[in-house]
């Protein structure tokens, strides 16, 4: 049984319906990539899993989210809070959403294992120092005493990863954890995070818009387009034989080493905005395979020869 199983969830925020029929699962020890262009619904999907939708006035109108055998939808806030941090941890793009600027770094990490694992002050500190070192931060003791503003963006994000690991969670949800950082720092943090997650056998839901990061880190991939799942497939299949035209086109948009000049074309049209999603398949105005049926009817997410895809005309 999957550690996390998300089945057909739809979300409303006021009059908007930003997510529709989102379906995917994550196994223990697996790294699942969630990709899509801006506005496709990646962050909202993360908020659903974390049970944080009510904070922005949103609600899940359909579907289920089952974590380790328990349906999270309808779970009282107090139980959700117990799960968050302890069993499911969030790493967001901006480390300062997780860090308190006026509390020393060490105290903030210590608090996590103190609260969720019941460690004594001394044991919690020892654990924090070990985690800081595992994130390859030099001079863990000095960092333990420092305040957030004394660290660079990359260091702060490493601290947030240490905090996420401190409670020994089963699942980490990382929403564009390195997008704001410089490329050399980004690559190092992805590498360290993947190593630590794999060593501990944790599941990771890695949200990114970067197909290079997906190719480097993930076992399986969910591709979102305009609030729906376009495709879910294994990492090899996604890149070698994608089942959805959008996946195929998206991959072609990234320049590869040695690619001939003039061969990068992009996808025609614009990324649709939530206030005017097209009828039928939402990719139809930009899809080179689109037929009349695509404009009338939304394709269902169905099993293909590998994975799942939502396309009327992709091969079986």
């Amino acid at each position: 049984m999957a550690l996390l199983s998300v089945q057909g969830i739809s979300v409303s925020i006021g009059a908007l319906n930003p997510l529709e029929g989102i379906t995917f699962d994550i196994d223990k020890g697996e790294i699942l990539g969630l990709v899509g262009e801006s506005g496709s619904g990646k962050s909202l999907t993360a908020m659903c899993v974390m049970g944080l939708l009510p904070r922005i006035g949103g609600s899940i109108t359909k579907g289920s989210i089952v974590f380790d055998g328990r349906d999270l939808i309808g779970l009282p806030e107090i139980e959700l809070r117990r799960l968050r941090g302890k069993r499911i941890a969030l790493i967001s793009q901006n480390p300062m959403t997780s860090l308190d600027p006026i509390i020393r770094i060490g105290a903030q990490i210590d608090q996590v294992s103190n609260l969720h694992l019941g460690l004594s002050a001394e044991a919690a500190k020892a654990r924090s120092l070990e985690l800081i070192a595992q994130l390859r931060i030099p001079e863990p003791a000095a960092i333990h005493r420092a305040y957030p503003h004394q660290l660079s963006g990359g260091m702060k994000q490493r601290i947030v990863i240490a905090m996420a690991l401190a409670a020994d969670p089963d699942l980490i949800v990382a929403d564009e954890p390195t997008t704001a950082l410089d490329v050399t720092i980004q690559a190092q943090i992805i590498q360290i995070m993947v190593e630590l997650v794999r060593d501990r056998g944790l599941a990771l839901m890695l949200i990114t818009h970067d197909m290079g990061v997906v190719a480097q880190a993930c076992d399986r991939v969910v591709v979102l387009y305009a609030g729906r799942v376009a495709e879910m497939n294994g990492i090899g299949e996604i890149f070698a034989e994608p089942k959805h035209p959008y996946t195929r086109e998206l991959i072609r948009c990234i320049p590869r080493f040695g690619q001939a000049p003039g061969s990068l074309k992009g996808i025609p049209g614009t990324v649709p905005s939530i206030v005017d999603y097209p009828d039928g398949c939402r990719f139809n105005p930009r899809c080179s395979n689109a037929q009349a049926l695509c404009r009338d009817q939304a394709p269902a997410l169905e099993p293909k020869s590998s994975g799942l895809a939502a396309c009327h005309f992709s091969e079986v």
């Binding site: 262009e37 801006s38 818009h209 197909m211 086109e249 998206l250 072609r252 948009c253 990234i254 320049p255 003039g262 990068l264 074309k265 992009g266 996808i267 025609p268 614009t270 990324v271 930009r286």
Partner: peptide, 11 residues
């Protein structure tokens, strides 16, 4: 820009 648009602009 999103990558699908970035590639259009480069083109």
């Amino acid at each position: 820009l999103d990558v699908s648009i970035q590639a259009q602009i480069i083109d």
